[in-house]
Design a binder for these strands. Structure first.
Lengths: 224, 224
DNA sequence: AAAATGCCGATTGTCGACAATTGACACTTT
DNA sequence: AAAGTGTCAATTGTCGACAATCGGCATTTT
């Protein structure tokens, strides 16, 4: 019986939500841009109903804002909002690390090693988007190693927001090689399963990212 | 011009979502229960469209699950899911406390004192639901004092889930007076603005709640 | 009698339509 | 010319309708 894999029955709403999300995090849809229901529905070849439901999903995910009688808009991020997001991420990931130190299986650690390798691999080779993606994947694995499913959900939400914000500024780090290297202290602490060291490494690592992103956003705001 | 207050333009979807949420956290709608679109729409006196949109909102908020072609159901909570939620809450609130120690204004502290008073006031007097509500309000204020809006959003989501879960088991603490008192160490640390002490007080306080809730849930699962 | 099949009411998925509202532009008034 | 008013196309809010699908029950088959 198990020869067959499940037939995908992803409904329209999910598909549409995914596509819009993708368009936002890749910067195809820019913050503040209006999402016209009719226009979107024509592009997807559906009616407006599934589009609206998808938009509602994204709304409560924070990717899209909704103004009654005016419609849906791609969310804009202010510098202080980005700071909040990164600051929350620090708390979240430190807690994940605290839990992971005790709960991570050897397989988890191995997966992280492999992912770190991938970070080095993409350095210089791949596009910025790919590097950012692999970076987030590494940190997601730490959350995963915490064994807390609810925590991962929050991380994923934050990651989506961060990606959506980051596309605005184009680049965060100029040296991909260096970016990969800054993960070493984290990996070291994990190998040793040293909770305090891991927390400190994570705190520093994310704080650096936070400062870089926030600074770029502040510049952006001043520019406008 | 400022003589007039804004006319409330809350759209149907928001209203419906609020009502369903309320019904879930008060236990009027029980976990696993099916949400029939037609039935709900008749109760609200609307068509199915706004009901579906509201349900989507609640879905991504984790209060409702959706199964394609089968519909929406009130989410069920397992003991391990509740543990995850409380565990995440620990991380979240400790981080909030860490930030609050530095950022809390005197007004914030005063508001917390007042809320603690309200906790004592409702002890024995008010319904369990009210006490739980006031308890959550206290902890929400700590998050608020962190000054991080994104953090509060996550807390609110968790609080909703906790409330939805808690209605299942009826009661968590038998002694409301004692419940109020266990907040004193938290308040003390806040008054002194002692970060470490606050974190320790919060960690202990929430861990106790977590253990109580999880134990009751495990019993519930065994019973079934 | 147990298992598989066929059928049917109930429910969801999606659609197109119409009324209500918005924002922008043109027009009047002073 | 500035301010206010009227008008209109574009868009959203909501609805009712129809096809597709599901779960359960009766029926058949072995």
């Amino acid at each position: 019986m198990s020869v067959f894999s499940e037939v995908s029955t992803t409904d329209l709403v999910t598909q549409i939500a995914r596509q819009i999300t993708e368009a936002i995090v890749t910067g195809h849809l820019k913050p503040g841009e209006r999402l016209t229901e009719l226009q979107l529905s024509r592009q997807f070849g559906t009616s407006r109903a599934p589009v609206r439901e998808a938009a509602r999903l994204l709304e409560s995910q924070g990717l899209v804002t909704f103004s009654p009688r005016r419609g849906f808009f791609v969310r804009t991020f202010s510098a202080s909002e980005m700071r909040d997001i990164y600051e929350l991420r620090i708390g979240l990931e430190l807690h994940a690390g605290y839990l992971a130190v005790e709960r991570a299986t050897d397989a988890d650690i191995a997966a992280l090693e492999k992912q770190l390798g991938r970070l080095y691999g993409t350095a210089g080779q791949a596009s910025i988007e790919t590097q950012i993606f692999e970076d987030f994947a590494f940190h997601r694995m730490i959350c995963k190693a915490s064994g807390n499913a609810r925590l991962i959900r929050v991380y994923d939400e934050l990651a989506t927001e961060m990606r959506a914000g980051i596309t605005l500024i184009g680049k965060i780090y100029d040296d991909p090689q260096r970016m990969a290297e800054t993960h070493e202290p984290i990996m070291d602490a994990l190998r040793k399963r040293d909770g305090d060291e891991l927390r400190e490494a994570l705190r520093y690592h994310i704080a650096v990212a936070r400062d870089a992103v926030v600074a770029l956003f502040e510049e952006l705001e001043k520019g406008v």
